[in-house]
Design a protein around this nucleic acid. Sequence first.
RNA 1: GCUCCGGUAGUGUAGCUCGGCCAAUCAUUUGGGAUUCUCACUCCCAAGACUGGGGUUCAAAUCCCCACCGGAGCACCA
Length: 492
Amino acid sequence: MQRIAPELIEELHEKREKEHKLPGLDITDGVVMRIAPNPNGPPTLGSARGIIINHEYAKMYDGKFILRFDDTDPKIKRPMLEAYAWYEEDCEWLGAKPDEIVIASDRLDRYYEYAEELIKKGDAYICFCSQQKFKQLKDAKKACPHREKDARTNLESWKKMLAGEYDEGEAVLRIKTDIKHKDPALRDWVAFRIVKMPHPRVGDKYQVWPMLDFESAIEDHLLGITHIIRGKDLMDSEKRQKFVYGYLGWEYPKTSHWGRIKIHEFGKLSTSEMKKAIQEGLYEGWDDPRLPTICSLRRRGIQPDAIRNFMIGLGISETDIAVSMDTLYAENKKIIDPVANRYFFVHDPVRMMIENAPPVVAKAPLHPNIDRGIRQISTRGEVFVCKDDVERMKEGKILRLKDLYNIKITSLKPPKAEYIGNDRSIIERGAIIHWAPVDGAKVEVLAPDYEYNGVGEEGIKSELGNVVQFERFGFVRINSVDGVIRAHFAHK
RNA sequence: GCUCCGGUAGUGUAGCUCGGCCAAUCAUUUGGGAUUCUCACUCCCAAGACUGGGGUUCAAAUCCCCACCGGAGCACCA
């Protein structure tokens, strides 16, 4: 084919490529992308979308990828000290090492400077209304009495605010927009509020904290962000921020937004819900196999490139989507199948005597299609077989123990068989079962919904950290080999 | 209630900007078959969609209007 129709092959390749391609960006001058998480827990599959897509674009245009921690809420969505490093690790593991890392809680002074500038220009004011009071006025398209205060008065109040003279909830800094704006979501929004609770990183150094809309607006400009791709829940955020950009004479980055992503298997778990459930002991930790965190997927043997391909395949449409982990698993299998060594693992093992069986050392390939060598398992007339297989057995049935020899079932109540040679041609399809040596290693496999206990080959112990396939069972990652082997289930 | 944004097979996606080459792409999924010392992998075949209704036009998935459905924002959360 290469000889007679090279152009067809070319075309085929192009089609293959296409599935993992993102739409082009509108570029005027370079590309600087960012992801801006609040480190109040470890990165999840949701975070991975932002990490991968933004990094992918930066890479595509030879641009820059920035990891910025928007950790400006010491109270409600309180950052976790450990989570900063988790983000760095997971970004790197996903193949999206940031070119620069910025932490908002280090840069409050800059935000204060711009706040002051806006106050001086009359584009922001200190508001002393209660939350409810302001909402009432806002919904009625009415300005509050503080809106018309002059810049000097506002500046004084701002200084007092910074000096800690007000209590939490007593005063906020609002950005003037249009109090009669037809969209209530945009009317005079809060840029700073008072939080007295110490921040996990910077302690009680600050009591006046910016809201996301303000912090992010300033940072995106300071960092020279050219394109923002994020969830569509932040669409109105853009509209609010554009007022600030207008006042400061800045140009807003180009934006696109994707819809909400829901994963069938996990439902909608927020970081704070997960945190609570872990504290209550419902999960063993952030890497519990039932959780959609990156650390959990890593422990299960999901490969970074599989996650990457999966995310790129989802694209960046504004439609809300509900996807199944099956798609991720399919991507993962493509990567893993050629490299995973095969082993026998028998869950719910049942001991079976085999009469007249000679002692044999089974020689089985580590991989069925690729020559990766063999594994050897010695047996002497007795093996473990899976309970499920025993339940399907009938007296007189001829089976083959894979890579070992043929047997004929002679009894069921205690399962027994007799050795009947090694002629593969007498075996019908589907009559091959796997087995484990009676002196094999104890193995536990933790799946999202079940824990399997059983016996496997000794050779599994050499696969620490690797993904292997337990034949007729599925792919697992070997996570511990001291004493009993502990593995986590990836997928079929 | 006000405002904004969406709606292509079971799922995700391409096409929509610039109407015709779209009886609609690719992947996954499901069913069947081939191969196989795994119920894995590979290969082959098949199934399955433009939310509905109007309009513009020689021609509409693509443009316009209405309806319906879904999502988001209206926080001193991110």
